[in-house]
Every structure is written in structure tokens, then in C-alpha cells.
Design a binder for these strands. Sequence first.
DNA 1: GGCGTTGCTCAAAGCGCTTTGGACGTGAGT
DNA 2: ACTCACGTCCAAAGCGCTTTGAGCAACGCC
Lengths: 343, 343
Amino acid sequence: MNLKDLAAMLGLSQTTVSRALNGYPEVSEATRVRVRDAAQQYGYRPDSRARSLATGRAMAIGLVIPMSAKQEMVNPVFADFIAGAAETFAARGYDLVLSLVANADEERAYRAPTTRGRVDGLLMQAPLTSDRRIAVLQQTGLPFVVHGRTSDHDDSYSWLDTDNTTAFRAATRHLLEFGHRRIALLNGVEEMDFARRRHLGYSQALSESGIAEDPALIACQFMTETYGHAAAARMLDQPAPPTAFLCSSLLVALGARRAIEARGLKMGRDVSVVTHDDGLSYFPNGDPGAPIFTSTHSSVRDAGHLSADMLMRIIDDPDCAPLQTLLTSTFVIGHSSGPAPTT
Amino acid sequence: MNLKDLAAMLGLSQTTVSRALNGYPEVSEATRVRVRDAAQQYGYRPDSRARSLATGRAMAIGLVIPMSAKQEMVNPVFADFIAGAAETFAARGYDLVLSLVANADEERAYRAPTTRGRVDGLLMQAPLTSDRRIAVLQQTGLPFVVHGRTSDHDDSYSWLDTDNTTAFRAATRHLLEFGHRRIALLNGVEEMDFARRRHLGYSQALSESGIAEDPALIACQFMTETYGHAAAARMLDQPAPPTAFLCSSLLVALGARRAIEARGLKMGRDVSVVTHDDGLSYFPNGDPGAPIFTSTHSSVRDAGHLSADMLMRIIDDPDCAPLQTLLTSTFVIGHSSGPAPTT
DNA sequence: GGCGTTGCTCAAAGCGCTTTGGACGTGAGT
DNA sequence: ACTCACGTCCAAAGCGCTTTGAGCAACGCC
């Protein structure tokens, strides 16, 4: 059922029918009702491509999802990010077009989002510290917002990021104030910019207290439970074990807790744990109001929401200056951290 | 840069340029090279909407992602499913269009995938036991494949599913053979069809051994670590605690393990745990070759791959009979299960 | 009566591509 | 010399929508 067919059926022109359905004022209320009823009855649905071709707007947003090709790892965070973004977009009538891109695959990273006309803007996630894709996106001229930042790129693009450095500095300080001196960092892969920034915050807090960083207390890997367990176990079995762990994700913290408890120690008393918490819907930190882990909390779903809002604003006004939002994570006190044990 | 512009620039017709770029034989090798070079040089990229409008194919697949509105829960499994599917689609030049749909929101569930022309087919996930969306999809006439099944719908559509019932029956038998008599089931929400089928398998195995099902040993909820912990803890503190847990996800199993170990018990010796393992890339069951949990394993990423293959086949031959694939999960022996303790 | 207004409707020109149905040599076969 | 096939290219007709510019009544106003 075309617009043409529908118009013929009604004895009207395509113009009038189109206007009636799209709410233009130049059409009488009587015919509008007539048109709407007929459209409903015959199940008419405009063809999105034709409409998009005519209007110039695709009514779709591209989502560039990085995959670490090496380990076939999918970022567990992106589901919630999308969920947040999708709400905003759906409300404005935009669809989401995915392009999964292996970090290494420059060619597709370039081509995929560039297929002309598919999308009106892009959302990019999880940039590496040295990520060339941002430059590529800038060249295309398409509006885009990056979730995260790239340390080695100038700041001439729009991004939304969490205050990773500040948050991890605060978390480290929290542990320092509790008297901890040997604080381990179980970080993500430091190719990722967020991991690099968290490490930086950790380093800053340590050096502010005049404590030297111990390489034996630092691990960086894909953030899984087994990794958290293995790294924590290894460190705890050292001659000079850490009295506290700072983790980059709840999953890692879970692993650390297991290592701690397997050694007959009690988390929060013998060994403290502080973790970052992305607030993933399917992975809550305890029950609402009763957090288990002391954590720096920043909802990645909210980040999705806000990134989408930003992108919408840029699409509405393409010539505006780059928008940049820095979210401050909240520090949540749970049962997992406490005073350093007096030896 | 249009096709028109490019053609004018080259002194050729649009026809010839289009054919040169799309590899039609009616164009001489010399001009083909000339055209390709020019396209490269001027960065010509065909407009996907125009092409799609002309060819009739959208070169995109819709992905219906359910969200449980109540709890704002995003299915953690879908990231890996998408990753698998995306590989197949990308190889064939198809994009992925997301529509997140709240389970309750019938209206959007209906409308979203129906926007005409956006997609050539649909992939649907995680159906409920009584899911009306399948009927809706059938009405649209669009090719689609469901990941999972719906027990209360006839079998006239294409699906790919894991043998949930058989797997959970086998897992339960495994525990029964070890002498366990009080086996707890920590299931997902039983609105979901897969959860219902797993419960069924569990029930079958029990009744085959003449054991009555104990409601106090059955829990069904969104599958989180805290849920696993809370449910397992509650059950272990009963007067007649279970000697084994059968879990629907690794996250839940992790919680159960925590509850077990917190009571000074050893998993695999005092209390056994068997879990389903979706093989999520970011959540491995121990290291490769050294599984921690005894599990029924079925890679959801592979499922994505295969579903995509099926959909491609249906799109190529729309009149073929419904394709239906039942994956058999492998039973993996880990350290988490062993003989029931002799009391 | 002539004029501008207002309200409703339409024909037709795109949007940027693919594809059909020739056109125009060129060389071989009869 | 005429035909026929072949290789190479083109003009133009869509695909299904939006939007411009204009037409046509009917109406009130000077």
C-alpha cells in the first residue's frame, strides 16, 4: 500500500494525504480524519527510505561498538549504555544502527559508519588512549558524541565521560585515610583510556602521600571474575601482601573477595576492597540502599541517556561548539572497606 | 558527491558509473578502473537510502531486544548474541538496526519493527512463555528468526534454541547419581520460556527418581549474584538444607558459592553446584580447559552466529519451510560438583 | 465590481540510486 | 554488401516519499 494507492483510493492527491498524515495545517480537519481512518484501515505505513531520501534525515543514529579482537571480548557495559541511549532516541523517533567494529579493523571502522545516509549521527564508545577513529569521525563531518575520551587527542570533539581520575584518587585516599599503605590496583586493560585515567588517579593519591608505587601491586587485564581472583590471590600470597584492593569493576571485585575469603580473611576487616561500579542493571552492588562494596558509582545507563541527549542537541544545531560533559561519580560506602589491620 | 556529479566529472553516464562500481560485466575494464580511481579520489560513497529504495532491499536486519520494564533489567546475554550475529551480517554487508522494546509495550513491539523498508528481516530474543509478539511478526510477513521458543505457540515459525529441558534434566541426573536428594533450583524468572523449560527438565529428572519436588528449594528471579547469594543462603539455613544447587546462570552460581563458603562449607565437597553457562566472553567459567563450575554449556555467541545464518537463508529463499535448530549443550565437569556428603 | 485574503487542494519537481531498453560502432560470417 | 552478434555506453523510467509553487473557490472589504 503506497501513498499513491492510498491517495487514489481516497480521490485525493499525494500531497494532501502526505500533509494530512504529517499534521500540516493546510488540510481541513474533515479530510484529515478521513485520511487517517483510511490509513489505519488499509494498514498504510510510509516507507522509511523514501521518506528519508526526501527529507534528508535518516532518523537513525549509528552506534560504534568496539570489540577487542584478540580475546573476542564484548564490553559488558555496552548493553546498559545502549539501553539508556535507546530510551532517548526512541522518544524522538530515532532508530539505532549498530556497527560492531574490531579495534584493529581500521578499514571497517572507517567505512561502516560512513555509508552515506544511513545515520544522522554517531555514538562511539570506549575509546583507546590512542584512538584514530576520532579523527576519522571528524573527517566525515557527521555529528558524534564519544562516551569516554582519548587522552592523546585534542579536545575539539564532543564527549561525555566520568571523572575516572578524580574518582580513583578519592577512592585511593579513602583507603589511605584508613591507614592502608599497600594498596593494590586491579585495573582494566590500559589500552583503554578510562583505565589509564584511573591508574593516574591512583598514582596521584599515592604520591601525594609520599608512597611509592609498587609494580607488584598493579595488574591490568580484561575485567573478569577469574582475573580478579587470580590477581588478588597472587598478590595476597606475596611476602608483603596488600591490605586493600582497588578494582575497576564489580566483577573483578567479586574475584578479589573470593581470593580474600579463601584465605580465611574477612573482607572489610582484614583486607579492604573498593571498586568502581558502573551500575549495571543486571549486576547490582547489593540491594538498593544496602551496598556491599565501597565503590565509586557512576551509572553507565545514565551516561547513555545523557550522551544521546547531547547528540540530539548537536544534530539540532550542527554548528554549535563541541559539547563536553564530565559526570562526577558518587562515592558509596559499603561493608568492604575499613581501617587497615594493625600488624 | 553524487553519482550524478561523479558521472559528469568523468564524462560518463550515471548508468556506466553505477555499473562500473557494482561490478557489472557490461563495462570495459579500462573505464572500470578509471571510475574506481575517481570514486576513491573524490571519496564517493553511494547513498544507502537511494540504493535501497531502488533495489528494494534494505540491507539491514532488525534486532528486537526485550527489556523487562519492571526492573529496568537488560538481558546481559544479548551483547554476546549480537556480537555473534553481527559477524555473519557484516560479512554479508547487512547492518543491524536495534529496537529495544519493553515487554509490556505491545504498541511499540508492534510498530517498531514494522516501519516499512527499514529492514529485510528480524531477529527476536528471549521470548516469554506466552509471547504475542511472534504472532505479530508473522502478520508482518517479514522473515524472522527467534532465539528461543514459545511453549504456547504453534511451531510454524523459525527458531533456534538450546535444549534447555534435556540439559537441565541431565544436570539434575548428574547430581542424583552423586547421591544428592535435596537439590535446589535457582532459576530465572519463569515468565521466560527458557526458565520454564529448565524447570521442566529438573522436574522430570526428579520424578524419574521418585523424588518429590520441594517448593522451598526452588527460586526464580532475575539472575544476579546477590539473588544467588540470598536464595542459597536462605536455603542453606533451613532445617533441611539442600546438598546441591542447580543454577540458571554463572552469576547466580557465583552468589551460591559465596553463600556456601560463608558457612565454612566447601563447594564440590560439602555442597555441589551445577550451573548453566552461556559462554559469555566477558564472563568465562574459569580458564579455558580448566572450568570451575560443572555446567551445561551453550555458547550464546554461537547461537547468534547460527541464528543469523538461518535468517540469511530465509531471506534468500522466503518461501522455504520454517527452519528450526535445536542446539545441544555440552556437559562440562568442573570442580563444583561431587558426591553427596554422607550424613 | 475589483481587490486582497484565507482555506483547501493539486501537479510536478526533486531526493540519489538501479535497471530497462535501446543506440552506436566494430568486426566476423554469409 | 548485408546481417548478426558483441562490446560499450546512454537516456530515461522508476523506487515512494516530501515540498514548492500555484490554482481555485469563497469571502469580506473598500
